Simulated assay, not measured.
Amino acid sequence: MTAFFQQLRWQFVLLQKNNIVGISIGVTLIYAAILYFLRDNSQIDKVLVALVLNDPSVIGYFFIALAFYTEKKHHLLAPLFITPVRRHIHLLARVLALSIVGVLCSLGLAVSVALTDLYFTEFILGSFGICALSILLGIIMMRYSDEFLKFSMLSAPVFLLFINLPLIQYLGAVDLGFGAWLLPIQGSLDLIDFGISGGSYRPFYVFPVLLILLPVFYFLAYRTYYEEVLKAS
């Protein structure tokens, strides 16, 4: 456990050195400005859900790739083959560190608009679920590219489908019926919506889905991380 927390601390240091924390704050401030100008809109809850959905997912999906490609460019990943730290510890620390950044940024957005009405537990769980799943999906997609620009071009449609299809369903533009239950982030979206609006969600669906999807995504991400990212470095 000590090794994990040491790795977690160093991951925050690396995020700062790679300017990931600063960029995350910058993205969040842009979203906060949008919320400020729309604060009197009757649909502010839906706007907030939409922005909160995008904030941790953008931070998770694109910034994990940016961090890996930056470190690969400077030959910082190769030493991981000889380090005594287990690769699972290193990868889990990376996922958790960036997830915490994503959750704090999304929490900042929500608090600025719905401080007194926010259900913090559900909101944080939903934001963490979206950020962690986005990070793991980003790692999986690195299998198909060797540089960040190519990664962005190839994976943007996947990201848009991953995030925007549930969002379009939530906004009522389409009705997927029971098909919505098959969307990976639908459970996390339900938690965020409840955290902001206090409506309702299906705990018998939300929590089992997260408990199943997170390990599955992690297994696929770890294989890509070891076979494609580390070996290629």
Rank of each mutant, 00 (worst) to 15 (best):
D175A: 11
G60C: 10
L98H: 02
N54F: 15
F63W: 08
E227Q: 15
G199A: 10
N164A: 13
Q7R: 09
T70R: 14
A132Q: 02
P79T: 07
I100Y: 01
P215V: 00
W181M: 14
E71S: 13
D193I: 08
R9M: 04
I212G: 06
V206D: 11
V111S: 08
K231Q: 13
V47M: 13
L210H: 05
A156V: 08
R39P: 03
V27K: 00
V158P: 00
P208L: 07
L107V: 11
V47Q: 08
G108H: 00
D193A: 14
V103Q: 01
S152E: 02
V21N: 02
R223M: 15
L210R: 01
Y61P: 05
M142R: 04
G138H: 03
F120C: 06
Y226I: 15
K46A: 15
Y218E: 07
Y218A: 07
P215Q: 01
L51I: 10
G26P: 06
F151D: 04
I196K: 01
L53Y: 07
F81N: 11
I124V: 15
F128N: 00
V229R: 00
D190F: 11
S127D: 02
L160Y: 10
L8T: 07
A156N: 06
D193L: 01
V158D: 04
L29F: 12
E228C: 10
L191K: 02
M142G: 09
I23D: 00
A78Q: 15
A50C: 12
I44M: 11
V174Y: 10
L182S: 13
C105I: 03
D45C: 02
S200Q: 14
F62R: 02
S134Q: 03
T121Q: 09
G60V: 09
Y144D: 04
F207P: 05
I89V: 14
T70N: 13
V95K: 00
G138C: 04
Q169V: 05
W10R: 08
I135T: 05
P184G: 06
L149A: 14
A93H: 05
G199S: 10
L183P: 03
V103G: 00
F219Q: 14
S24V: 08
L136R: 00
L182F: 14
I23C: 03
F194P: 09
I212C: 10
G177N: 07
S112Y: 02
I124G: 01
